[in-house]
C-alpha cells in the first residue's frame, strides 16, 4: 500500500533523506524511529506530496507521489505534528470542510461527519469553535478531520507529541482500530514504548538513512542489546561516539 523506493531528498548541500526503501502493507503498522533531524518528517512529507523527492520514488496504493499527487492525497490521512486547526471554525464545520475538499457532498458528507462525530465522541463540543477546545478535544477533531474520507493509508507524524497519557491513549486506540480495519499505517516517533506497543515493524532512520528494519524482537536480536532503547542507541549513535573507555 505504502512504498518508498530509493527515495532521496536534499536541501542544497544538506541530505535529509537518502536512498530510503520500505513498504507498509494493508493492516500493518510501521513505526519510523529516529533522532531529531534523522529525516522522518521529510520522508513523511514526501509521501504526503508536500515535498518533492530529489531522487527515487514513493507511492500510495500504486499512485506515484510526483506524477499523481491528487490521487495520493485522496488515499491518505495525514496528521502533522503541529495538529493545527482553524480556530474560527467549529469542530463540525472543520470536519465538513475537509470532507468537501475530499470530494464528499450532500447527505453522504453529513452522514460521514456524523459517523466521525460519534466515533471520536465529539458530539458535546461539535458546535464549539476549535480555538476554544482543550488539547485532547483538538486531537480528536484532528483525527476525525484526517479520517473523514476513510482513506486506506494513514501517515502520522509524531502523533502523540505534546499529549498527556490519556490523550495518547486515544491515539493508540485509534491506531489499533484502524489496523483492524485493514489500513496501512506509517507513523514517526521518538517514543520506544509507543513502538513496542503498536508497531508490527520498525524502521530506524539515522542521518537520513534507513539503518535497520524489522520487528522489535528482530532489532533487539540484531544489536544484541537488552532493550529496544539500547538497540536504538546502538543503531543511531555513530561507532565509537558513545563507547565506554
Amino acid at each position: 500500500m505504502i512504498r518508498f523506493d530509493g527515495l532521496g531528498k536534499t536541501y542544497g548541500a544538506l541530505v535529509a533523506v537518502r536512498d530510503l526503501t520500505l513498504e507498509v502493507r494493508p493492516g500493518e503498522v510501521y513505526a519510523l524511529l529516529g533522532p531529531n533531524g534523522a529525516g522522518k518528517t521529510t520522508a513523511l512529507r514526501c509521501l504526503a506530496t508536500l515535498l518533492s523527492p530529489t531522487s527515487g520514488f514513493a507511492s500510495v496504493g500504486g499512485a506515484d507521489v510526483v506524477d499523481e499527487p491528487l490521487q495520493v492525497r485522496a488515499r491518505i490521512a495525514f496528521l502533522a505534528a503541529s495538529m493545527g486547526l482553524y480556530e474560527r471554525l467549529t469542530a463540525r464545520e472543520l470536519i465538513q470542510y475537509f470532507g468537501r475538499l475530499q470530494g464528499l457532498e450532500g447527505s453522504g458528507l453529513e452522514e460521514r461527519v456524523d459517523e466521525m462525530v460519534a466515533l471520536f465522541e465529539i458530539g458535546d463540543f461539535s458546535a464549539r469553535l476549535c480555538g476554544r477546545l482543550s488539547t485532547g478535544q483538538r486531537q480528536r477533531v484532528s483525527l476525525a478531520r484526517a479520517l473523514v474520507h476513510d482513506p486506506p493509508a494513514l501517515i502520522l507524524d509524531e502523533p502523540t507529541l505534546g499529549l498527556d497519557v490519556l490523550s495518547g491513549r486515544t491515539i493508540y486506540d485509534f491506531i489499533e482500530r484502524e489496523r483492524s480495519r485493514g489500513k496501512a499505517i506509517l507513523f514517526s516517533t521518538h517514543q520506544m514504548e509507543e513502538v513496542e506497543l503498536l508497531a508490527d515493524r520498525v524502521g530506524v532512520l539515522a542521518e537520513g538513512r534507513l539503518v535497520a528494519e524489522g520487528t522489535v524482537p528482530e532489532l533487539i536480536a540484531l544489536t544484541g542489546a537488552p532493550s529496544l532503547t539500547r538497540a536504538f542507541l546502538d543503531l543511531v549513535v555513530p561507532v565509537g561516539a558513545g563507547a565506554a573507555p
Binding site: 495525514f78 502533522a80 493545527g84 486547526l85 475537509f98
Partner: peptide
C-alpha cells in the same frame, strides 16, 4: 503560523 497550511495542502485539491 497556526500549522494548518500543511494539513490543507494534503487535501486532494490543486
Amino acid at each position: 503560523e497556526r500549522g494548518t497550511l500543511e494539513t490543507l495542502m494534503t487535501a486532494p485539491v490543486p
